[in-house]
Write a protein that binds this DNA or RNA. Sequence first.
DNA 1: TGTGTCATGTAACTGGTTACATGATTCT
DNA 2: AGAATCATGTAACCAGTTACATGACACA
Lengths: 172, 172
Amino acid sequence: MSLRHALLGLLAGGPGSGYDLLRKFEISLANVWPATQSQVYTELSRLAATGLIEVTAEGPRGRKEYAITDEGRAELRHWVLEVPPQQRRRNDLLLRVFFLDTVDPAEAREFLLRSRDQVAELRDGLRKVRESVDWGDDSLSVYGTLALEWGLRYATMHVEWAEWAIGRLPGK
Amino acid sequence: MSLRHALLGLLAGGPGSGYDLLRKFEISLANVWPATQSQVYTELSRLAATGLIEVTAEGPRGRKEYAITDEGRAELRHWVLEVPPQQRRRNDLLLRVFFLDTVDPAEAREFLLRSRDQVAELRDGLRKVRESVDWGDDSLSVYGTLALEWGLRYATMHVEWAEWAIGRLPGK
DNA sequence: TGTGTCATGTAACTGGTTACATGATTCT
DNA sequence: AGAATCATGTAACCAGTTACATGACACA
């Protein structure tokens, strides 16, 4: 149940409404932990009900501003440091690779090429983000950069792997 | 809904019972698409009900052997080649990295060290698999090796990233 | 005879997605 | 006046996890 912790993490950086948080998900967490509108609002209600966050202000259009509580901070800290991250990750692309023996080599080759191109595009997008954002040395930037760099290395790895894999395909 | 396709893919390699398939999940698909016992049996029933697989034999202890049908092969092929793989992948480790600014640098450092060690272990396990299995040049081995190599490159990337990241942490 | 493995099934729950539904405020 | 954006909520559904439940067969 990490959506709960993603919300706590964002609120640890300052109070905000569901709407605010939703935009933060789209901007900064899109590639790490996407969330839908309905999910955010229902989880915020639940978090408020259990006392991990609280409503600190109400604005126009029924806007509710939430802030993290001490209990919430404790829960966030516990999750970050003590709950072991998932190691077994599902990968539906790799699952397809496993079954490429059911199509012919030319089709397998196209599949790998497409996958290379898609990830190369992602990589280029991330590079642009790195260049466009001015990275100060405040703590949030430091850790944001670490995550971005992981994404860049991941994408580079995948592109290189795909090219290597194409070279190993059985000839027709 | 990829469990369905994982089952179809496994059955494309030959018929088997739920129990057989469950073991195949544990051996070959554990790092790519883990599945639980209850999930496998319910999905097999559903697949049989929709005609993508069929019961070809019944053995002792209520054992049912399933085989993929032509319809099933068509569905598998469609999924492999035409359904675009998920690009946005959730990563709860990276989500934690994002919020490492809420703990102190020494704790962040420990977090990254632990993560490096865990993935290094995974990498060593994969290396052993690569050495222990004798990889012929049959098509199944070819594609199995591609997936394994992806895992190795992934793990190597992560270990290097973690070490790089530790070096970038703010001093106490 | 009793332990281990083979073998299947179902129920309750959790997390996430899609779709539906509503309405206030701001800006042009 | 109308469009865009701000803002929230709920219902139905799908995928996956945990736990419960049962029993046949093989082997020592």
